[in-house]
Write a protein that binds this DNA or RNA. Sequence first.
DNA 1: GCTATCAGGCTACCT
DNA 2: ACAGGTAGCCTGATAGCG
Length: 747
Amino acid sequence: MNVPLSARCSIVKGVEKLRVWYNGKERIVDTKIRPYFYSYRDLDIECFKKEKVKAKALSDHQEKTFWKYSFNTRAELRAVSGKPELKEDIFENELSEYGDSFIIRNRLDRPNVFELFPHKNELILLFVDIEQETDKGIKFPTGENNLSSIAWCTNDRDVKCILKKKESESDKLLLENFIDEYAKINPDVVVCYNKTYDIPMIIRRCIRNNIDTSPLTKNQEGRANIGKKEMAFLDGIVIYDVYDSARQDQALDGNVENRGLKEVSNFFGFEEKRKPLTYEEISEKIGTKELAEYNMDDVKRLFYLFDIYWPGIEYNANDLKIPLSIAVAMNITKLGMICIGEEYKKQNIIADGTNEQRYDKIFRRKKKAGEPNYQGALVGIDRNGYFEPVYKADYGSMYPTIMSSFNLSPDTTKLLEYVPYGKFKIEEEEMWFVYHIPDDVLKMNLIIQVSKRPGFFALLVKKFLLERMSFKNSYKKTGLERYKSASDNRKVKANGGVYGNQGAAHHPFGFAPIAIATCGFGREAAQMLIDVLNGLYPNSVIETDTDGIYFTTKNFNEEDVMDAFKKKLKQVFKKDISLDIDIDKYDSGYFYKAKNYVLKKGDKIIKHGVAMKAQSKNILSRNLIEELAKAKVNNQPITKISDNYMKLDFPLEHFAMNVTMGMPYGSYKNKEGNLVTRLARDAERIQRIEPAVGNRYYYVKEKHDYVLLEEASIERLDITYYREQVKRILKMFDVSLIATKLDDWLK
DNA sequence: GCTATCAGGCTACCT
DNA sequence: ACAGGTAGCCTGATAGCG
């Protein structure tokens, strides 16, 4: 790699320094910069250094004088930046307040700083997974329980396992043996699934058994700590949690039952050779070959998933010139800080406030909870039911292409004024274009002026798009995963890293007029394509979502569509823009509601939307949907569905629905009334499972209440409730005949 | 006291 | 701690009815 393994902030003699690990050693590095923020005001505050700097303001792109306040430590800066009376007057403070963001600040101010400490040695990996005993009748182990097995492997992927022999034995020997093996391997990266469990539990068990944990770190007197939120810290070692990647992977949305190791690895095609053990079996099979095999199987699943996600992470570290430790914990906000921040730095721009501070008419309106800040994409359904055949016309990379084609950039784009709601309009003048963007959320037209002088941001996006195209072509030619990874990387940068952050209320580098104009052009582009299609094939458009339009016709001719599209494009946007469309064909489709439909392509049936996928509903619903969807897209009359659905003749598990805890328990507004908090309390009381974000609860409806599956009985099920569930699904597929029959039957 | 309707809260999806 | 958009399910308040 061209970057270090890890970097973290550390105070040495009262000053913030960086501790950088690479090639097996640690260096304490003078940062050259100190935590700082900017202000227009001459503030009377205590700081290390106060100086004047000249830079362009993001708000109006004018050259201005700023005060720059530096501090010895992040804590000293936070003591000032946290004061409510100063909040509105200070800028870019977010980049100095926390560890990761201050590392990004270093990277922005000194772009090659981390390339001075490259980890050139081969990365030594350690994949690890543990098994643990549980108390009788309890699902999850605690720090009190012995470990029963540890399986691991390193770069050679030769999986090994140490077992605790007997139930009565303690796990001391097991841990000592593992620590010896670990020290021999001396890993740089520890790979696990759910970092809040395996590593902290190993540390915890070592402490219980009086085993020295320093061999787990790279330091003689190293620290193996469990920090906030059950996060383990091993000095000099990067912990990569594959679960983090799986959780963020939107390709898994609606396609897996949960984000557990088994579900996710199965989704990606892991060959399942043996049936996973149940919780009870894990406890029963102490010291057996089966337990060892089960444990080792999990390690195989772990490196199987590692191979899918890791290339992108290592690529990011090198490409963004950031320590690997930052790359394993990357998210869109940080990506935006780096990609956008780098450009601002080059242009000597200071972000004088967040979007919320600079555009109060947009971000500080009185909003209802969940109401958006500005209008987004065009979405809608024009026709419902069965169609054959079905086409989809798709814009490729619509938002990034718009940003680059319309030259949207902080140095070219200016929100001039808000006027009464009206029509989209383009006016061309000598030096600039003026766009009238109607926004039905703000209920106003936004007048946005864009200079004809090329903007730096549009060029950046164009660069991402061109790079992506080249990587995509290389991938097509060679099939090498690293090209695909590089291509996806550029796509993410151009989409989320750029568009999403520009519209974010609190991102330090957001620039809302770009996001608003991008969505506005996007809606026009979508409407234009609808008009082209309906013009060629009257009433053909079925459903629209952002950049893709489903339509149906028996007389499709690609050339006609492309010709009409190109003509209209120029006419609507009054300039040559590089928006392209791609057309895909399906045998048939059944369209229920916006974003909810089923498509058939060959023998594949593709379900879209929350109503169709119904992952949180029960097996009974999913099976019924599957049956009806199949019949619908094959244009078969639905004359009979299995009598079981009428009689509700299923085992208890088929009735169990589930819900995931999406926020910390304390964040729920109505903890008494809300279903997930109620179930969480039951689970805590009965199963000793602490409420936690990501917990999934399986429950059924009994006559008087919702109860956890484990507590349910088939005799107490609320049959009326489940009949309504079946009826709703029948209605979804327009099965009126059977719905009537069901009503009769219900009488 | 019962049912219907609506808004609000939340999750699960889509682009 | 990325944006907006749609749909489904649940709760609790309120209106309307007898």
